[in-house]
């Protein structure tokens, strides 16, 4: 009921290629969740399903209690999605784009102005916000896209690879922004390869490998599970070792046998 994102037994395959296999994952409100996994693990696919862009062949997804399906407008109104390839209209200025997004989400005009002003200052966008977005560097685009996602103060913020191409100062600002949202009771779901960021800010971490959730828990719980390893990097490399997963089919078993099962909401998923 009080879940921000509720994924139940979701399965998605493209032709014969299984991208997400029987995934069950619930994210409570007010959590910052980091979604990790090697290239091609199925992170982007999962995210697109949460946003209602792809439909799972089996299973259900709810966002803030709204079923994401054929008609997921209610759920979509609650979330904001930042794709891995940021989208902007070339021939709009950053500001025009932000205003358009504000209108799309029916944000009152005064509110739009306030939010744009605040984000411009924090993300240092003043120099370029009134230029056409086609002239932006990758990082500038990321900043505008991120701001667009924050325009309507979404209940759930879903970001695919937020930190790629951002300078260290901006990474810090973005981390702070995320933490502030969590304090306000909003939810952040991010997929990332930057383990350091995940380690530093995430409340919980999930590791996906070959479409299966192989690991889920807080940083402490993960450390407890994998007694020998101390850094997230070691845990990640260990759980996603290529030799442990021959082939990409659903038959691949991915969990190291000796990993202890934990109590509470930390567990290693078995298929």
């Amino acid at each position: 009921m009080n879940q921000a994102i509720d994924i139940q037994s979701v399965h998605k395959h493209f032709g014969r290629k299984v991208a997400v296999h029987d995934l069950t994952l619930t994210i409570p409100r007010g959590e910052l969740f980091a979604f990790l996994g090697p290239n091609g693990a199925g992170k982007t696919t999962t995210i697109k399903m949460i946003c209602g862009l792809l439909h799972p062949q089996r299973g259900t997804i709810d966002v803030c209690g709204h079923r994401m399906g054929i008609n997921g407008l209610a759920g979509k109104a609650k979330l904001a999605y930042v794709p891995d390839q940021p989208f902007l209209y070339d021939k709009l200025t950053g500001r025009e784009f932000l205003l358009f997004v504000g209108e799309m989400y029916r944000v009152p005009a005064a509110e739009q102005k306030r939010i744009i002003g605040e984000l411009t200052e924090r993300l240092v966008m003043g120099d370029f916000l009134d230029k056409l977005t086609e002239s932006y560097s990758h990082g500038m685009k990321q900043k505008v896209v991120l701001s667009a996602a924050l325009m309507h103060d979404p209940e759930v913020l879903i970001i695919d690879e937020p930190m790629v191409g951002l300078d260290p100062r901006t990474v810090r600002v973005v981390k702070d922004l995320f933490r502030e949202r969590i304090k306000l009771g909003r939810t952040v779901f991010m997929s990332t390869h930057t383990l350091g960021v995940a380690e530093a800010v995430a409340d919980r971490i999930g590791i996906l490998n070959h479409g299966r959730l192989v690991c889920l828990g807080t940083m402490d719980q993960l450390r407890a599970q994998a007694a020998a390893q101390h850094s997230l990097e070691d845990i990640f490399l260990d759980l996603t070792h290529p030799e442990l997963q021959p082939g990409d089919g659903p038959g691949a078993e991915t969990i190291p046998e000796e990993t202890p099962r934990d109590k509470g909401d930390s567990h290693v998923v078995e298929s």
């Binding site: 407008l73 209610a74 109104a77 029916r106 944000v107 103060d153 909003r186």
Partner: peptide
């Protein structure tokens, strides 16, 4: 704040055309 239910209702009632 637009996260309140009213905003969602507004979006669903008169979605962007």
């Amino acid at each position: 704040m637009s996260s309140n239910p009213d905003a969602t209702v507004a979006i669903l009632h008169s979605p962007i055309g």
